[in-house]
Amino acid sequence: MAVMNSQQLKNKIERQVKRIRKAERNHRQSLPSVGTLGLVMILPIIGAVYLGHWLDDKVEGYSTHWTISLLFAGLVIGIFNVYFLIKE
């Protein structure tokens, strides 16, 4: 078993501290992104469906044309939101 001198031990501990600090910094930066992915995906869909339902209520008779159309539009917007958030 090799015996380390004090300088080698100091260098090893400094490398470990730097590695731990880098991991903590990266972990803190990724948490807000993960937490908001669901919101940036779901909120446009919910808003679009709500708007579509409101528009369908303004049309005479039973219709879901606007609701379904805006559902897909909200889905596309949500996908783009997630893409641009991950791209950052």
Rank of each mutant, 00 (worst) to 15 (best):
M1T: 06
M1Y: 13
M1P: 05
A2W: 02
A2S: 04
V3A: 13
V3E: 10
V3P: 02
M4W: 12
N5D: 11
N5C: 05
N5K: 07
S6P: 01
S6F: 08
Q7C: 05
Q8W: 10
L9T: 10
N11T: 13
K12P: 05
K12T: 10
K12R: 11
K12V: 10
I13Q: 11
E14S: 13
E14R: 15
E14L: 14
R15M: 07
R15F: 06
Q16H: 10
Q16E: 08
Q16N: 10
V17G: 04
K18V: 08
K18D: 15
R19G: 07
I20F: 12
I20K: 09
I20Q: 10
I20E: 12
R21S: 05
K22H: 14
A23G: 03
E24Q: 12
R25D: 09
R25Q: 07
N26D: 12
H27K: 15
H27W: 14
R28L: 08
Q29P: 01
S30M: 09
L31V: 05
L31R: 02
L31D: 01
S33A: 06
S33P: 00
S33R: 14
G35K: 06
T36C: 02
L37T: 07
L37K: 12
L37A: 08
G38Q: 04
G38N: 04
L39W: 09
V40G: 02
I42Q: 02
I42G: 02
L43M: 10
P44W: 06
I45P: 10
I45Q: 00
I45A: 01
G47F: 11
G47Q: 08
G47H: 12
V49M: 13
V49Y: 08
V49P: 04
V49L: 12
Y50E: 11
L51C: 13
G52C: 11
G52D: 13
H53M: 12
H53T: 11
H53Q: 13
W54H: 15
L55A: 07
L55T: 05
D56R: 11
D56N: 15
D57H: 14
D57T: 09
K58S: 15
K58H: 13
K58N: 12
V59G: 12
E60L: 11
G61V: 07
G61T: 09
G61M: 07
S63T: 15
T64L: 07
T64I: 09
H65V: 09
W66N: 08
I68R: 03
I68W: 03
S69Q: 08
L70S: 01
L70C: 03
L71Q: 02
F72M: 01
F72A: 00
A73M: 00
G74F: 00
G74Y: 01
G78P: 11
G78H: 04
N81I: 04
V82R: 01
V82D: 11
V82H: 04
Y83G: 04
F84R: 05
F84A: 06
L85T: 04
L85A: 09
I86D: 03
I86Q: 08
I86G: 01
K87Y: 09
K87N: 04
E88H: 00
E88P: 00
E88A: 00
